[in-house]
């Protein structure tokens, strides 16, 4: 029973079936989604850890892989992330009371001066789906806000996003400020105009060309 529910939940997340009301994907129309199946699974005794590790993380891993292979595109990825979010709502109490452990804390924000959020949001959802707790600082995030978040979460990894050529240069002072108070904190950067060379130049530890690359880099930190 639990295995069947976990398989169903994994499929809901992989194919973006959020809840019963959602018409997407067409082949699952009228069927329960990640919301209802997670609830059912918890009520039938499936542990939150099993839900997270055996359904959500594995499903989002498949989603990331398919995206990097151009088998699915951003809309499908967003719907998968939304389905994962609908499941995750039911797991929040277990994260809060410590009965389920996540891989770590990931602080995320779009650098100051930059108001773009689609890449940041997409990556944040993928990171959460990979088993991390995500603290999203939002857009136009000042240096002080990043530093304060690192002080409050000293073991966290930091992700900084930028879409503009004029704001990508703002990443360097953010990284310098973070490293000044916490030299061991790892920082990954991403965004359309960036490159791995640029990431290295500004002192970032990692660069994600796409969400899946970022997830692979993060997973190496916990391996």
């Amino acid at each position: 029973m639990s295995s069947e529910l976990l398989t169903k939940l994994s499929e809901c997340v992989e194919f973006g079936k959020i809840n019963l009301a959602s018409p997407y994907p067409p082949q699952m129309k009228g069927l329960p989604g990640a919301d209802e199946i997670t609830k059912e699974a918890l009520e039938s005794g499936v542990t939150p850890g099993e839900i997270l590790n055996d359904a959500l993380i594995s499903a989002m891993n498949k989603v990331g892989q398919k995206f990097s292979e151009n088998k699915i595109f951003v809309p499908q990825m967003l719907l998968s992330a939304k389905a994962m979010g609908a499941s995750m709502i039911h797991l929040k109490p277990f994260f809060a009371n410590g009965s389920v452990q996540r891989k770590g804390v990931f602080i995320l924000g779009t650098v100051f001066g930059d108001l773009h959020d689609i890449g940041k949001n997409l990556f944040g959802m993928m990171v959460e789906g990979a088993g991390w707790e995500v603290i999203d600082l939002g857009i136009d995030v000042k240096i002080e806000k990043f530093v304060e978040a690192v002080k409050q979460n000293p073991t966290a990894v930091v992700g900084i996003s930028a879409l503009l050529t004029t704001t990508m240069v703002n990443m360097k002072p953010v990284i310098e400020a973070i490293k000044a108070i916490s030299p061991d904190t790892k920082v990954i950067v991403g965004g359309a105009p960036l490159s791995s060379d640029f990431a290295a130049q500004i002192g970032a530890d990692g660069y994600g060309k796409n969400p899946q690359e970022g997830i692979v880099w993060l997973d190496k930190l916990t391996a």
Partner: peptide, 11 residues
């Protein structure tokens, strides 16, 4: 909203 329209082409 870009994220929302990307999902709502299906929803």
């Amino acid at each position: 909203d870009m994220s929302e329209i990307l999902m709502d082409i299906y929803i």
